[in-house]
Write a protein that binds this DNA or RNA. Structure first.
Length: 627
RNA sequence: GCCGAGGUAGCUCAGCGGUAGAGCAAACGGCUCAUAAUCGUUAGGUCGCGGGUUCGAAUCCCGCCUUCGGCACCA
């Protein structure tokens, strides 16, 4: 039975281009996972988008004298291009600035508010005297009241390590322009996380299949749950859906609150865009669906505690959870919802159209939260400001996506921090990817193409022929199990080991010698190698989609085993349009199972799958870093 | 400071209660179909330090050293 698998990928923040550490942590792993499950015949929905609200984007905009939307537009484009070029096969990669996302976010907020899970509280906040903008704690600097250190930050003193409150700093100043901040009382909304404490504790405690660090970290975190602020004093965000706030420009929903809702809103957008507006429910309201979230370790609690808390609170309520707009927009709530959405022109189009009568069903909680560690760069932390950074775009402009995907999988930060160095990148590419897998494919295809032109008819298989075939074909089970368990590094290692077995087999059999005396035996040896390559092609497809597609074609097969992605433009009610990264993956032909190697099928002229890199690129890239 | 994760061969990492592993780098040999690719052999570690539990610990517990992450208004 095919399963419904939601692959929910962390939303890259659109205040600049993303570096390879970001795609190493969640982009490539999530894509491998999604492609594997598609090969298994499961119904995969892979969603994400650019995260476009929040203070850093407004600051970047101020710096350039343009609007926050300008910044978000620019980097949403850049990031989308990067993900496309890396071959990340999202069903929908959208943005948090769509009307759809605003509507879903406001529904979540309003529903939680109506249910009493959102509290109101007056707090003291810092504001810039020059711009009137809010200053987050870390953007206020001053003298530490405890140790006297002159450049303490509002949230913490880097000298004595004590946690601070910006109000207590002596001679506070704005980190942005040095002006003295103004402190004033402001009302905020807080998510009542303690209300979910027991349920979260029981739920997390029972998730035995999570990676241990994710589970223990989360369990520890919820020991001391406090209400968490979900609004900010800033003009760039989703409007607060309450009559007294919805039109105000000085207070919006906190970016993290809306960002996690993106998983749901993007699923709904996907369903709408393809003309089946209810289809998202097969993932979100089906108890059999499994949700996998991919992110870096700094985001764990947002996905294991805060978002699940929001989902628990929302339950089967709200416009989306209840199964239909009509069911929840009953007599009592019809009016507030009108106010709620009055900034939108056409609410109806955004709401489910035919869900009336569907039983209220709570939205699904995460099944697994797959968190990665961090990638470092030549031994140092990535830092855009200090120039310790390699942008995805930069790498892809000079090297193949599959080379980068290979490195980020085999040497990525799956279980612990790992280091990217150009020397390792070149070595992994040349000595592993090219030498083991690329070379096996190349020597096999060129020999067969040259000597037979098509897949040769084998005679009876010898014991060693059968043995190597059996070992390689065992990969469907062994590699499949590793992939299903999100153990990507081990899975790729196993695939490489199996490819190596075939190289050994060929060295022992020496078909290039045999062919001079016994053409039929040589044909059998090459058939055996081809049959292994034919299966290995499937194993490598999730990891290396571009080269696997080429191999698929060289073997004489038709159709896409890993086909093209596409951008589509969608226009919403307001008339504003946005670009979505998507693709039609249902027509792809590969299956994660043994398939016949058709004897007599003509091969297409093979070319090397991968490029060997000159050792000089190490020096060149290091020089580029220094410059 | 509190919480958490890591410190294993020259390098990058896997193993996480049962005689120390892989790849690369190093040394030697075979092969020459293949992107001078490949195949084989050898060498290389008191598994951060100190205690403890156990028949047995890299693997569990305690302490210390060290690196990194989180600690509510950066995402």
């Amino acid at each position: 039975m095919p399963e419904h698998i939601l692959v929910a990928v962390a939303w890259p923040y659109a205040n600049g281009p993303r570096h390879i550490g970001h795609v190493a942590g969640f982009g490539v792993p999530s894509d491998i996972f999604a492609r594997y499950h598609r090969l298994r015949g499961n119904h995969v929905l892979m969603v994400s988008g650019t995260d476009e609200h929040g203070t850093p984007i407004t600051l970047a905009a101020d710096k350039e004298g343009i609007t926050a939307r300008d910044i978000a537009d620019r980097y949403s484009q850049v990031i989308g291009d990067d993900l496309f070029n890396l071959g990340l096969s999202y069903d929908t990669f959208t943005r948090t600035t769509t009307e759809n996302h605003y509507a879903v976010t406001q529904d979540l907020f309003k529903t939680l508010y109506d249910k009493g899970y959102i509290l109101r509280q007056e707090t003291l906040g810092a504001f810039s005297a020059t711009t009137g903008r809010t200053l987050p704690d870390r953007y206020v600097e001053g003298t530490c009241p405890i140790c006297g250190y002159k450049d303490a930050r509002g949230d913490q003193c880097d000298n004595c390590g004590n946690q601070l409150d910006p109000v207590d700093l002596i001679d506070p100043r704005s980190k942005v322009d040095g002006s003295t901040p103004i402190f004033k009382e402001t009302e905020h909304f807080l998510l009542d996380l303690p209300a979910f404490g027991e349920r979260l504790s029981a739920w997390i405690g029972s998730q035995d299949h999570w990676r241990p660090n994710v589970r223990s970290f989360s369990l520890n975190f919820i020991k001391e749950l406090k209400p968490r602020s979900i609004t900010r004093d800033l003009d760039w965000g989703v409007p607060i859906p309450l009559p007294e706030y919805v039109d105000r420009d000085d207070k919006k929903i906190y970016v993290w609150f809306d960002a996690v809702i993106g998983y749901l809103s993007a699923s709904i957008e996907w369903a709408n865009n393809r003309g089946t507006p209810e289809a998202w429910r097969d993932w979100w309201q089906s108890p059999d669906a499994r949700h996998y979230y991919f992110m870096g370790k700094d985001n764990i609690v947002f996905h294991t505690v805060i978002w699940p808390g929001m989902l628990l609170g929302y339950g089967a309520g709200g416009v989306y959870g209840g199964g239909s707009a009509a069911a929840t927009v009953g007599a009592q709530q019809a009016e507030p919802l009108q106010i709620l959405y009055k900034t939108l022109d056409s609410l109806e189009e955004l709401l489910p159209s035919d869900g009336v009568g569907r039983p209220a069903t709570p939205l699904q909680l995460p099944y697994n939260v797959v968190s990665s560690e961090f990638l470092t760069m030549e031994g140092k932390k990535f830092s855009s400001s200090r120039g310790v950074v390699i942008y995805v775009n930069d790498v892809l402009s000079r090297y193949d996506a599959d080379s980068l995907r290979y490195f980020l999988t085999i040497a990525g930060p799956e279980n612990q921090d790992t280091d990217f160095t150009w020397a390792e990148f070149v070595r992994r590419n040349n000595d592993e990817l090219v030498a083991t897998w690329g070379n096996l494919v190349n020597r096999t295809l060129t020999n067969v193409y040259k000597n037979f032109g098509s897949i040769p008819q084998p005679a009876a298989l010898s014991e060693s022929d059968a043995a190597v075939i059996a070992q390689v074909e065992g990969g469907f089970a062994s590699i499949g199990e590793l992939l299903a368990g999100a153990r990507f590094k081990a899975a790729l290692t196993e695939a490489m080991r199996l490819a190596g077995l075939v190289n050994i087999y060929l060295s022992e059999q020496e078909p290039w010698k045999v062919i001079k005396v016994d053409r039929e035996r040589a044909a059998t040896i090459w058939y055996t190698a081809l049959r292994c390559v034919h299966s290995l092609r499937i194993y490598f497809t999730p990891f290396l989609p571009f080269s696997s597609q080429k191999l698929h074609e060289y073997l004489g097969h038709d159709g896409f085993i890993a086909g093209p992605l596409e951008f589509k433009e969608y226009t919403e009610a307001s008339g504003r349009s946005h670009r979505v990264l998507t693709g039609d993956y249902t027509g792809w032909v590969g299956r994660w199972e043994l398939s016949d190697l058709p004897v007599g099928q003509a091969l297409r002229e093979p070319k090397p799958l991968f490029k060997k890199l000159d050792e000089k690129v190490v020096e060149e890239e290091l020089a580029r870093l220094g410059a």
